[in-house]
Design a binder for these strands. Structure first.
Lengths: 154, 154
DNA sequence: GTAACCAGTTGCATATTGCAACTTAAAGGA
DNA sequence: TCCTTTAAGTTGCAATATGCAACTGGTTAC
């Protein structure tokens, strides 16, 4: 099997493809950013993001369907619906923070507001990086792709 | 200023919006994944990803325009063009790996192949996480958003 | 010199997104 | 009670974006 065919199979079963099928549409990341910033209601998302109502409706439904957000009607005001991050949704935080840090560094050129800090020390979080298990940050040159079969060898 | 208006301003200048304007279109992340996996040529991307040729052409041009990929004609075969990651592009690796790990854990449910390892130890990289400067991993409950102005206080 | 190859482009079909107006159900107030 | 406002959508239609197949223009290989 030559390179192209091999990679085609590799790519089809890759976690990135899988993730993108769920959160890869336009607005999905921005809705999640809103969720991490404390938004819960349709009208809040609509007015802060400026997204079209039908698209917002569609995206929220999709995120709920994939259990990234939960959807619960407010019992004290039955008009309102609260969308909340599930554990699955909360685990997207590293993706969002990594994306944000990259955007700050390479696109907007300045730090965003508000800043994410350690609640206790009030110090900003570190730059997201690829690391060894013992926490050492690795550059591309220190990394390699190996087949899973070659991994079990040791 | 009430919450919605405030967040609208916050969001407009956020690194996530900035990043998404550059790499937020469909296929962009998958093209970058290909780049990190050693693809360099138009036909390689086209055949491995199965993307439409006009869209691929458009995306590559856009990534080059934003200096995420460089575009250099091969001097030894003037038909061929090589696309390569720039430093700016290489720094998207944490985003891609975080997305991949999330997709493996929560969507596809299994580890992808190949595995990214420390070149020297051959051990897989750690899970991407939000951490303190000294490397301790932080959960959402241990984090807080604070205004930049409140940060300079100490 | 001719066939095949690479990196696109073009025209047209389909799908996604955006916009404005409308709907439904539920508060809130006089 | 009736009237107004609010929240969370839905609908119809216009504008974009994406996908597909065929074609081009400049190499390169035979």
């Amino acid at each position: 099997m030559h390179k192209a065919e091999h990679l085609k199979e590799v790519f089809a079963e890759c976690g990135i493809s899988a993730a993108l099928e769920v959160v890869g549409e336009r607005w999905s990341f921005l809705i999640l950013r809103g969720a991490f910033n404390g938004l819960h209601h349709f009208e809040e998302y609509q007015s802060t993001l400026g997204i079209a109502r039908n698209i917002l409706s569609n995206r929220l439904a999709r995120l709920v369907e994939h259990e990234i957000l939960s959807r619960e009607p407010d019992p004290s005001d039955r008009r309102r619906v609260a969308y909340r991050l599930t554990d699955k949704g909360r685990e997207l935080l590293p993706v969002l923070i990594a994306l944000r840090q990259w955007g700050e560094r390479w696109v907007s050129g300045m730090p965003s507001n508000p800043v994410l800090v350690d609640r206790l020390t009030r110090r900003p979080v570190a730059k997201i990086a690829v690391r060894t298990e013992d926490g050492r940050s690795l550059t591309l040159g220190e990394l390699a792709w190996v087949d899973r079969s070659e991994l079990a060898e040791g």
